[in-house]
Design a protein around this nucleic acid. Structure first.
Lengths: 240, 240
DNA sequence: ACCTGAACACCGTTCAAGT
DNA sequence: ACCTGAACACCGTTCAAGT
């Protein structure tokens, strides 16, 4: 019934920042405040009013520096992207090691900021930190003999793997960290449902009732396995 | 300052549905309405009030059947998960083909419902359709000789790849489908920013200014490549 | 140029009260 | 048992008006 509102999803990065003067607010301050709230309370806890309150300012004033909440999220996401360790420009390490290191660093950062993966996944990343990271990786791949097409595919595949894996990991973490304090509590709470599915879905039930002892370690191991598979496959396609 | 609200992220699936009587509303009707809105207007367009309006009912009445908006999203996500083509129970196809088919079907479904990937990624999927899909795949892998651990890793890796790839694809699609109608328009709009990054990030700039002619086909090709790499790697680890 | 204050049009959720 | 109506406590965003 109601017509679709004419959203204008133009990215922040397509508009220049306003020139600097003597002012008590800034894009940087707003982004820092937003990241602090996101880290502490997640995406649900972020609102323009709360960011403004943290800066002791009115909500409306944020709109002088930032197009809106969506833009602020884009800025926050690029901000944490700056925490990723990137390969040196002229480093001597092989491309496999470079990609593995960068992917591990990216995963660690996304686990430190559990809100970031979903934000980065929802929007094309065109911020300076995103571009810098992509450019470094593509440079390494080009130097290693990757064609532009294969380098693109490699970057996209690894990025998808990291993002997807972290999203799944944090989803489970947040669910089991709910009202039930421990995993055992959660299982007791879910016992009824589990009993119901044991018969219908035996393979899944076996996993749910007997989860790995160390979730942290097994997530890490699964991530390493998937990454190795991708790197093996890329190497084979590079050699042929 | 404000204390974190005591959310109760217990999953829908942990609570039984209320017994059926003669009523003008139902979980199924609510979920159907929600999916229709999500398909038409995306996640931003979904509100409890709009779902209620579509069913010619008050917003409050939805809470008799559904715990809240988060639960409704879980239900909607599992609903579309039912559209995935799964392997027959006793099919004769090899495990590689089975996984490839299921992954392709999952990807197609996620592209049909661009809101679904982010919802599925945000929450552990414990609905009946999610469990059924996982169980079928795990059964095929077990029959092919996969250890439980390797089967888990395989399922997780492929799921992460599909989810991550679709999220990236839809993010770009929605960005370029914004106010600028065509990709050329979008590029003209972004020209200033592109010129600015051409010097700093040459490898990325080359990709942005000269995108592949057929985005659809190249996304599909990249997805097939990543999936092949994963399947190759799994096969090698299965044989060893 | 920058920020306030107030308003507008929405939200999710609760809950007495009706039937 | 099921649904309404009204309310509560929030939202994002806009914009005149101040300085």
């Amino acid at each position: 019934m109601t017509p679709t509102p004419a959203r204008t999803p133009r990215s922040v990065w397509l508009r220049p920042e306003r020139p600097a003067r003597d002012r008590q607010l800034s894009r940087a301050a707003i982004v820092t405040a937003a990241v602090a709230i996101l880290d502490a309370e997640g995406i649900q806890g972020l609102s323009m009013r709360r960011v403004a309150a943290r800066l002791e300012v009115t909500a409306g004033s944020l709109y002088w520096y930032v197009g809106g909440k969506d833009e602020l999220l884009e800025l926050a996401a690029d901000h944490v992207l700056g925490e990723i360790d990137l390969p040196e420009a002229g480093g001597g390490a092989g491309w496999r090691e470079v990609l593995a290191r960068a992917a591990a660093s990216q995963r660690a950062m996304l686990l430190r900021h559990p809100w970031a993966a979903s934000v980065l996944a929802a929007v094309p990343n065109m911020g300076p930190n995103a571009l810098r990271a992509a450019d470094r990786i593509l440079a390494v791949l080009a130097a290693a003999g990757f064609s532009p097409g294969l380098a693109d595919a490699a970057l996209a595949a690894i990025n998808s793997q990291v993002t997807g894996a972290v999203l799944a990991e944090t989803a489970w973490r947040q669910a089991t960290a709910g009202p039930a304090a421990t995993l055992a509590d959660w299982q007791r709470e879910a016992a009824g449902y589990l009993a119901q599915i044991t018969g219908r879905y035996p393979h899944v039930a076996a996993r749910l009732t007997a989860p790995p002892p160390d979730i942290e370690a097994s997530s890490q191991a699964r991530f390493a396995l998937a990454l190795d598979c991708l790197l093996d496959g890329l190497q084979a396609r590079l050699d042929s």
